[in-house]
Amino acid sequence: MIAMGAKGFFTDTTVCIGCKACEVACKEWNQLPDDGMFFTAMSYDNTVSLGASTWRHVAFIERPVPLGGQTTAHGISWLFMSDVCKHCQRAGCLENCPTGAIVRTEFGSVYVQPDVCNGCGYCIAGCPFGVIDRRAGDGRAWKCTLCYDRLRGGLEPACAKACPTDSIRFGDVDELRATARARLEQLHARGVTEAYLYGEDAARQPGTEGLNAFFLLVDRPEAYNLPPDPVVPTRKIAPAWLSLAAAALGMAAAAVGAVASSQERGHS
């Protein structure tokens, strides 16, 4: 939809240190309530996934799998990824929203207007990344706003501002793509051949026509809980409408047939 001047994130997971400063900064700036305190036994991850009150989530992938540049002593590799709403060029949540609560902003980001959302939940089922969710007790759908309020004031989003290693980079998506490709080349030259970009443009991720928040990863997307070939559900729906049209005509024909062939005595 909007390509020129769109703002977004490039998250380079190879320099993420798993400090969760982004999670904290996001909570603080947006004044998000807590999600409850519990121990998950999932490495250092205690927020589990993105949700209504978790708009940045750091994934911890701690396995006895050797990976270039990511392996510690004892052969354990540790991957971190700060996940966030992808602000897809074709967004499943936006295209499903029946109230017009979800809009595309002047920054190319996808924004839920809390004063319009009536909590129907259709965006939640429509997101191929499992990002947006409904807050229990609040009843509305919430997700990352790309810090719309900060952007309006000329500031970068809280998570990118707080990131101590610049793993989260904020800027014009066009410029971020160039940065990401340069970084990828650098890594490949250093022998980290498994590094690749996830969702950086429409050519690499045609199902979403590219993500305004894209990633540099070193393992399969599944390891980070990212879908390998996501698609906005709207793109697959034409056969269903055709099927419905045929079935509706079939029902009308059945009604005509049933009424016309009906008999006064029934059949005996």
């Binding site: 051949t193 498994e194 590094a195 690749y196 970009l197 996830y198 969702g199 050519a203 690499r204 991720q205 045609p206 199902g207 979403t208 990863l217 070193v218 393992d219 399969r220 997307p221 879908p227 390998p228 070939d229 996501p230 698609v231 793109r235 697959k236």
Partner: peptide
């Protein structure tokens, strides 16, 4: 999606992202 029934089914191109040699 790995079986080609994600975006690949409608876009014709496999958008499956993976590390090299995966």
């Amino acid at each position: 999606q790995r079986a080609g029934r994600g975006a690949a089914e409608v876009t014709g191109t496999a958008g499956v992202a993976s590390p090299a040699g995966d």
